[in-house]
Design a binder for these strands. Sequence first.
RNA 1: GGCCCCAUCGUCUAGCGGUCUAGGACAUUGCCCUUUCACGGCAAGAACACGAGUUCGAAUCUCGUUGGGGUCACCA
Length: 464
Amino acid sequence: MKPRVRFAPSPTGYLHIGGARTALFNWLYARRNGGTFVLRIEDTDLERSTPESVKAILDGLKWLGIDWDEGPEVGGPFPPYFQTQRLASYKKHAEQLLAQGKAYRCYCTKEELDARRSEGGLGWKYDGKCRERKDTPNLPAVIRFKMPHGDGSYSFDDHVLGRITKTFSDLDDFVMMRADGIPLYNFGCVVDDHEMEITLVGRGQEHVNSTFPQLALYDALGWKPPTFAHFPLILGPDREKLSKRKHPEADVMLHKKNGILPEALLNFVIRLGWGHGDDEFIPVEQMKQWFGFENVGKTSGVWNPEKLVWLNQQYLKKLPIEDIAQRVTPFVPGVAAGDPRIAKLVGAFRERTKSLGEMGEKMAGYFKHGVTIDAEAAAKHLTPDGKGVLAKARDALTPLGTWNAAAIDEAVKKLAETSGLKMGAIAQPLRVAVTGTTTSPGIGETLELLGREEALSRIATALK
RNA sequence: GGCCCCAUCGUCUAGCGGUCUAGGACAUUGCCCUUUCACGGCAAGAACACGAGUUCGAAUCUCGUUGGGGUCACCA
């Protein structure tokens, strides 16, 4: 049987890094095994769910290149894919459980519950006050699941964690549905996973405990539960679960803004909790061949920005120049898409920068007229001696027939020979004059990139 | 605190009873290359949490301790 897996985010904000990885793992599993990847929006938290968040999540997934076979925008055989549009179904199953005595109406108010909970302290479980209640007052009531009592337990064989068990006594009568008919997570999730014929639920480890009430539900409804895979969490630098509140890097799109390539983000994120021997550079096509739960680790991983950025540079270096050129353009202020100079600049800067943002910043100077010269650099290289060398260099360069890196380098080299100077003694004053800093690509390359007119003009300005 | 999960270099990890004086990668340091900066190459330091078992033999299996994380909502 072909597996059917899903990613079921709650639209209460942007696409979270943890969610992105959960989506990635499920998506790869589906792709690797010829299965189906379903996207379902769990928007039952009416207070916090917004259409903007739905869009943000969809946009995030698209940016990452994670496509879904069923779900919003594409439809599928089990619509709708928004939980708030499936209320009739939850109602039907809730009433069935009610009729069978497997669930009951609870009239305890939020306030009463809070009071009893604070009295009971941490770990307080619902006391069953309404469990055996026979009357049916005309009051708002939530529906609670009647958890079995006794010595039994629920267990399941997790694809990554192995067998996990929990006894009935550690579970309580959780609420399945609010008084207004909106289901809560555990209930909505079970009904939908069953109706959408999900065969395997892959999600973060923060959900292992919620697997038990869900198993109880499958049991009560007489349904065969899917299998489960719980993935290790991604931790922030403080070693706590990466959260939107405390960790800005949890926002997938923030990385886009910073000039991280989706390829690199995917590669980085998959290595947090999954590996394939000693491989580090793993393009998506390769992931699709290799990914499996056998190699998903059990231990949480800490977010490591240095490694992300290193991977990003690996992709910057390996992707086609034209491709990078197109993607870096938005990061270069005032440059129109398709400017042919961008591609040449990419060739020079892809090995010197780690993100599109950084690359764009460095490129910007090549599109302006004139430069601001760094005082420290000037003090070191534009000394009277340095200016003397600079003037000689100008004289050697001005008559050049072809203005390209090879010709320029040759001219500089010749000047070094005839004047008895070291290459550096010539290149550095030139570099400072022309870029304002002591660092740049090779001097010939730099001058070519600038263009004859601009380069000579900058030299002239520095000489004044 | 109850319950659940986890435990190899600073970080991500390889390791699935002997091939481990524990391998790779990021980061760090040094050297080489070199017109600067990068890239690249080479090298170094850096880990099996602890304690009992099981076994001829344990990083690998069992138990305990300690440590870390998760979860205990009419959020998901």
